[in-house]
Computed example of a mutant assay.
Amino acid sequence: MLNTAAALDAVDRSLLDALQKDGRATVGELAERVSLSTSPCWRRVRQLEESGVISGYHAHLDRHRVGYGVLGFVQLGLHNHTADTTAAFEREVLALPQVLSCHNLSGRYDYQIELVAPDLETFAEYLRTRIRNLPGVREISTSFSLKEVKRTVALPVDLA
């Protein structure tokens, strides 16, 4: 089993890079790209999946074409930081499909949520009715994306 980045060799990193670029590539196509035969390639991909290095596969959707014209970043301060409050907050955030990401932060705010909505009116209503009512929320500050310059979920696999 792979436990650390140090356990990844050059072939593993090449496989990861290839899969991030094309998650639908067949094992045969991957094997060709990394100069392996099919069976060893399949075993390596399976080992990367089993070790959790590859945590899943997905289709990347264009939010505009799906109907989400607004992307906002909501910074939240909580009343307190007890285990019960933060657990309740995080549990409810996990259940909100409009939340693309949620990060526990250092600094002034406790959390930042990346949130999508079809339009500003819907975003504002969602903020008032759902986000403001999350457990422990004391303070909210919102910024909107005016232009998305870069978005990726692909990680750089070359640590050099």
Score class of each variant (00 low, 15 high):
Glu50Met: 08
Glu114Ile: 14
Val45Gln: 00
Pro156Ser: 15
Gly72Val: 11
Thr4Pro: 00
Asp119Arg: 05
Leu115Pro: 02
Leu15Gln: 10
Leu155Ala: 07
Ser14Tyr: 01
His103Pro: 00
Leu146Pro: 00
Asp84Lys: 12
Leu155Pro: 01
Glu148Ser: 11
Thr142Asp: 02
Val11Ala: 05
Ile140Pro: 03
Ala154Cys: 11
Ile140Ser: 06
Phe89Ala: 03
Ile131Gln: 04
Thr142Tyr: 03
Thr86Asn: 10
Gln20Leu: 10
Thr4Ala: 11
Arg65Ile: 05
Val93Lys: 03
Leu16Asp: 02
Thr86Lys: 07
Ala95Met: 14
Tyr57Met: 06
Leu146Trp: 01
Leu76Gly: 03
Glu148His: 11
Arg108Glu: 13
Asp110Cys: 08
Gly72Ser: 14
Thr26Trp: 01
Arg91Ala: 15
Leu120Thr: 01
Phe123Asn: 04
Val157Ala: 09
Leu134Tyr: 00
Leu71Tyr: 02
Glu29Asp: 11
Phe89Ile: 10
Ser55Lys: 04
Arg46His: 08
Gln98Pro: 07
His81Gln: 15
Val137Met: 06
Leu15Phe: 03
Asn133Gln: 09
Phe89Gln: 04
Leu105Arg: 09
Val66Cys: 03
Leu76Pro: 01
Ala6Trp: 00
Met1Pro: 02
Ala6His: 04
Arg44Lys: 13
Gly72Lys: 06
Phe144Arg: 09
Arg63Gly: 03
Ser101Trp: 00
Leu105Asn: 14
Ala10Val: 13
Leu105Ala: 05
Asp84Cys: 04
Gly23Tyr: 04
Tyr126Glu: 06
Leu146Phe: 01
Gly23Asn: 08
Ala117Gln: 05
Ser106His: 11
Thr38Gly: 12
Leu48Asp: 05
Val116Arg: 02
Thr122Pro: 00
Ala31Glu: 06
Leu61Trp: 04
Ala88Leu: 14
Leu61Ile: 08
Phe89Cys: 09
Asp17Ala: 14
Leu30Lys: 07
Arg138Pro: 05
Lys150Arg: 14
Thr142Phe: 05
Val153Tyr: 12
Gly77Thr: 06
Arg33Thr: 11
Leu159Asp: 05
Leu19Trp: 01
Val74Met: 08
Ala10Gln: 12
Asp17Met: 06
Cys102Ser: 13
Ala5Lys: 08
Leu94Cys: 00
Trp42Val: 15
Ala5Ile: 13
Leu36Thr: 11
Ile113Met: 15
Asp84Asn: 12
Asn80Arg: 05
Phe123Gly: 02
Leu120Pro: 00
Phe89Pro: 02
Ala7Gly: 15
Ala87Lys: 10
Glu29Gly: 14
Thr152Ile: 15
Glu148Thr: 14
Asp158Thr: 10
Leu36Tyr: 10
Tyr126Ile: 03
Val66Ile: 15
Arg63Ile: 11
Ser55Glu: 09
Arg33Met: 15
Leu15Thr: 02
Arg138Gly: 02
Lys21Ser: 11
Leu36Glu: 14
His103Tyr: 14
Tyr68Ala: 05
Leu105Phe: 04
Val99His: 02
Ile54Gly: 01
Gln75Met: 08
His58Ala: 14
Asp9Pro: 04
Ala117Phe: 04
Val34Ile: 14
Arg46Lys: 15
Lys21Leu: 14
Glu148Arg: 12
Leu155His: 09
Gly52Asp: 03
Arg130Leu: 07
